[in-house]
């Protein structure tokens, strides 16, 4: 009896599977597959390619070393040189300013500043080649494309109308916008030198870079005093120094808005000594005419970073 029972069960399991059994088996297979897939590593890499095709391009290593940092600063200095040259060539510093009526013609001063930046670029390039890097003999690509070109275009040419925005007229005060740009660029040069100090490995490079930064900081201060005479220290520092004395923040540059238009964006006025310590914060530039809502172009100049470095595989455009 016992033998018969065993024989029966053995034979039963070898029978062909029914429809329900097949469904069950399929479900179990899918469930098992999902479970195993969930347990595998998440980094699967890129998708596999089917068929023949070109291989992915191999990008050069973005090495950041003394040479890269130094030739980047050479590019920044040359961008400043080129910007000043355009101001001088197009006589953008001459004429009167409705916002700063007493500022006068800063052509001579900016020419003096330009010479300093030419020397600065040469110095940075010399240091870069000493470090085994190639010199950088054109403006910083990022600074030119993202900051200087848009500023000159907005100030000198304005903006053409598009399907969804009205045209913006050229600047209502070109001299004001150019002098403010000079201040922003001098501050950028000074901050860039200061920002370089903890990044490079040699003390001699730090000292040389700071000799450039010191001069640029003084030029920024002098420009600030031309724009905003007698505004030596920030209101906050003055208040901290003399708690009992009431001080006031200098009013932003008066915006001669059109009588029927919206109020224009106020332009901050610079001071000679903006803070107790050297700043590394973005330098705010506001300029150009306002759009249909009165909003002027506003940009934050920042010291060079990973997206604006002159890597070994970067080169100046030919021609």
């Amino acid at each position: 009896m016992g033998n018969e029972m065993n024989q029966t069960e053995a034979i039963q399991t070898s029978q062909p599977m029914g429809r329900r059994g097949l469904f069950r088996l399929g479900g179990m297979t899918i469930g098992g597959a999902a479970l195993l897939a969930a347990c595998r590593k998440t980094e699967a890499g890129t998708l596999g390619r089917v068929g023949e095709g070109p291989t992915n391009p191999v990008l050069a290593d973005p090495i950041v070393d003394n040479g890269v940092l130094l030739r980047t600063l050479a590019g920044v200095e040359l961008s400043i040189v080129n910007a000043y040259q355009r101001m001088l060539d197009e006589k953008l510093l001459q004429g009167t300013s409705a916002t700063f009526p007493a500022i006068g013609d800063l052509t001579t001063l900016v020419t003096t500043f330009q010479k300093h930046h030419v020397k600065a670029a040469t110095t940075y390039n010399r240091l870069a080649t000493d470090e085994g890097a190639e010199s950088w003999d054109c403006g910083n690509t990022h600074l030119d494309a993202a900051y200087l070109s848009p500023i000159f275009d907005r100030v000198v040419l304005g903006v053409k109308a598009t399907d969804n925005a009205k045209a913006i007229a050229p600047s209502d005060d070109t001299v004001r916008d150019m002098v403010n740009l000079v201040f922003a660029l001098e501050s950028l040069s000074a901050e860039s030198a200061q920002a370089l100090v903890p990044q490079v490995t040699l003390a001699t490079i730090r000292a040389t870079a700071m000799s450039i930064g010191v001069r640029s900081a003084r030029q920024a201060s002098l420009t600030a005093l031309r724009i905003n005479p007698s505004s030596y220290v920030s209101a906050a520092d003055a208040a901290n120094a003399q708690p009992g004395v009431t001080t006031s923040t200098p009013a932003p540059a008066a915006a001669p808005a059109a009588s029927d238009g919206p109020p224009l964006t106020e332009i901050p006025l610079p001071v000679a000594i903006p803070s107790q310590f050297g700043e590394l914060s973005p330098v705010i530039y506001v300029g150009g005419n306002g759009d249909e809502n009165g909003v002027r172009l506003k940009l934050n100049f920042e010291t060079p970073s990973l997206n604006s470095l002159a890597y070994p595989y970067n080169a100046c455009a030919k021609g």
Partner: peptide, 12 residues
């Protein structure tokens, strides 16, 4: 460096 650059501005 941050002290030096501020003192440079003091002179001007």
């Amino acid at each position: 460096a941050s002290i030096q650059i501020a003192e440079a501005r003091h002179g001007t």
